[in-house]
Design a protein around this nucleic acid. Structure first.
Length: 597
RNA sequence: GGUCCCGUAGUAGAAUGGAUACUACGUAAGUCUCCGGAACUUAAGAUACAGGUUCGAUUCCUGUCGGGACCA
């Protein structure tokens, strides 16, 4: 519809000249899709122009419509209603659109290999416990956004940062060292990341016990949590790690390797991959170099005690510490070092970090420092801040075991999909491995769609019993419509029917059929908007509306059973186009479309 | 003390400052001689409160109340 916009602009020039109004920047004309019960296909909002042009809406609308028709836009009818110019386009135009969709690159799957580079980083887990529901939201958002950005012409590099050192992993280590069994994945039969998490929880329980004993002995909360033997042990382990103690490093390496094995298994199940994996332990030392560079540039300053700071008062923040007086780095320092490392690895690029909104403040500071160090342009930095996932009982806490484990949940969803599929019995003829794939896809669709249809920054409450639905505005519904289309097209093949070029058909589609074409025609716009706003939910809404429109059409319109040949041809073509669009949109949401379910 | 995010039917969500606020679940009533009923049709039900800007405010601004996060 760029043509429409150009012609509107040209009209405004002519019109204002005629009226003797000086050329002035007009507000860009808004082209919108009118509400469903309005007659037009597109609507132009005239209000903003009226004062400047000193015109009445009816006259302006009439002149504009006449101009557009005069220059040959495919306008069938038009009318002005309350300052909106509604345009109805010709049937031929829509038929041509449908034919053009086959060639459209947005429907084909090849992502661009060129274009500006975006370095995405997610989900950046700690290595002391397995992935949970919050990581799943992170991963679903990240995978989907990566695909949406690729579809919009970016080259996306996937990176992940393992927070593999520090207090938390020391806790798991302490519990393992103190345990009598010292289990391994082999001896316990547990998935590695779950085993590490098991010790983490064990530590938390033991620590709690010691603290309450200490409190009973008269210490206050603060003292107790520092003085207790386990707390000291963790501190010692962390120091020993930093001092490169061989024994501690050995245990650390081993337990982390268990974690990686487990986490990688989950990533594989979710179809996540990384072009480059970073570890906090590896960028740890780089931090200090970063600090000295910042000092040379005058971005940081040193206090008499040797600690290094940055003054951010001029942007309404305070002074932030970047290096402690004892020379150890802080979280911020490591993120700065990581930025240097990424630039060295990938060259000039945008940073796109996906981290929960509890770290909004941290990222605000981090990005400001990166700018001052000249590492990035403001527009090249983006923090996708997403809301926490909570349970009806409140915030999830791994320490207390009140988390929804990612692996458990995925398994549960697959089981739900299996139960439903068994009830239908349509997959029975497939080999077991194929059935499993379908169950997995449907189960994941349910969860991915549930999380992606929501604005990323909103906090969400996940109720394990009630949240996942397979009916209505859900992933399985979209999959269902897709599978139906696929099934129809399979049957058509058996009957020797084929989709055809529709513009040559002697057939006039009805409103429902036209609506489906109109919907599909919005797809490229939806992708661009989703990329611009970093919001997969736009794709989710698009795909639901398309599926829903097709479903309504399907009930009243025979396709293969249609006796009139032109109608049949048209509907088959329409079905094929819908199937492609659903498939492509599901892909952008990180889902795999199934052929039957 | 400071900063940030969020308040839309019973529930979960949608709406670049645009038309009568759009869906789904649930509830109620219907549809099936037919290509996949995980479907379709219909009904009831909501913008926290008070101001302001605007031709027009769920959206922007100010304040109040409520929920959440972070910094010190």
């Amino acid at each position: 519809m760029t043509r429409l916009q150009e012609e509107v602009k040209r009209f405004l020039e002519i019109y204002s000249n005629q009226k003797g109004i000086e050329q002035q920047p007009f507000p860009p004309i808004q082209v919108q899709i009118p509400p469903a019960d309005m007659p037009g296909h597109f609507t132009l909002v005239l209000f903003p122009l009226l004062p400047k042009l000193k015109a009445k809406p009816d006259e302006l609308g009439k002149d504009l419509a006449n101009h557009l028709m005069h220059v040959g836009l495919p306008i069938d009818t038009w009318e002005v209603v309350k300052g909106f110019l509604n345009l109805r386009l010709t049937t031929l135009f829509w038929m041509e659109q449908l034919d053009a969709m086959w060639q459209d690159s947005t429907v084909s799957k090849a992502p661009a290999q060129e274009g500006p580079t975006v370095i995405m980083e997610f989900p950046s887990p700690n290595t002391n416990k397995p992935l949970h529901l919050g990581h799943l939201r992170n991963i679903f958002l990240g995978t989907s956004l990566a695909r949406i950005l690729e579809a919009s012409g970016y080259r996306v590099v996937h990176t992940n940062l393992y927070n593999d050192r520090g207090t938390n992993i020391s806790k798991s280590m302490a519990a393992w060292l103190n345990s009598s069994d010292r289990l391994t994945p082999e001896s316990s039969g547990m998935k590695g990341d779950h085993l590490v998490g098991h010790y983490y929880v064990q530590f938390a329980e033991a620590l709690k016990q010691q603290i309450s004993e200490a409190k009973a002995a008269g210490l206050d909360e603060d003292q107790a949590s520092k003085m207790v033997p386990l707390a000291k042990q963790v501190e010692e382990l962390t120091l020993a790690w930093e001092a490169n103690d061989a024994d501690v490093r050995q245990v650390w390496e081993t337990m982390n390797s268990w974690f990686y094995q487990g986490a990688e298994q989950t990533f594989a199940r979710l179809g996540v991959y990384f072009d480059r994996v970073y570890k906090e332990s590896e960028v740890y030392d780089l931090g200090r170099q970063t600090v000295s560079r910042g000092l040379e540039m005058g971005v940081f300053y040193e206090k008499p005690d040797g600690s290094v700071w940055i003054n951010l008062e001029d942007i309404g923040l305070d002074h932030k510490l970047v290096l402690r007086s004892n020379g150890t780095t802080v979280y911020m320092t490591q993120d700065l070092a990581l930025a240097y490392q990424k630039l060295a690895d990938f060259g000039q690029a945008s940073f796109f970090d996906e981290v929960g909104n509890e770290q909004d403040y941290h990222f605000k500071v981090l990005f400001e420092i990166l700018r001052r160090l000249g590492l990035a342009q403001p527009e090249g930095l983006y923090h996708l801040s997403y809301g926490m996932v909570e349970l009806p009982s409140g915030k999830m806490k791994s320490r207390e075991g009140t988390v929804v484990d990612a692996d458990d949940l995925l398994e549960e969803l697959k089981e739900m999909a299996r139960a439903k599929a068994d009830e239908q019995g349509r997959l029975n003829h497939l080999p077991r491995t194929e059935q499993e794939r379908v169950w997995e896809s449907i189960g994941q669709s349910a969860l991915r769609y549930f999380m992606l249809r929501v604005d990323p920054k909103k906090r969400m409450v996940f109720n394990p019993e009630e949240s996942i639905d397979f009916q209505g505005d859900t992933g399985p519904f979209i999959q269902y419509i897709h599978a139906r289309c696929a099934s129809l097209l399979r049957n058509a093949e058996g009957m020797q029917f084929h989709p055809a070029a529709v513009k040559t058909l002697d057939y006039v589609p009805d409103e429902m059929e036209l609506n489906i074409i109109r919907k599909m025609q919005e797809f490229p716009t939806a992708i661009h908007q989703a990329a611009k706003e970093y919001s997969p939910s736009i794709i989710a809404h698009f795909v639901y509306e398309l599926a829903s429109a097709y479903s309504a059409f399907y009930h009243g319109h025979p396709v293969l059973a249609e006796s009139q040949q032109n109608a049949r041809q048209f509907r088959l073509s329409l079905t094929r186009a819908v199937q492609l669009h659903l498939n492509r949109a599901l892909h952008l949401l990180g889902m795999e479309a199934v052929q039957q379910m």
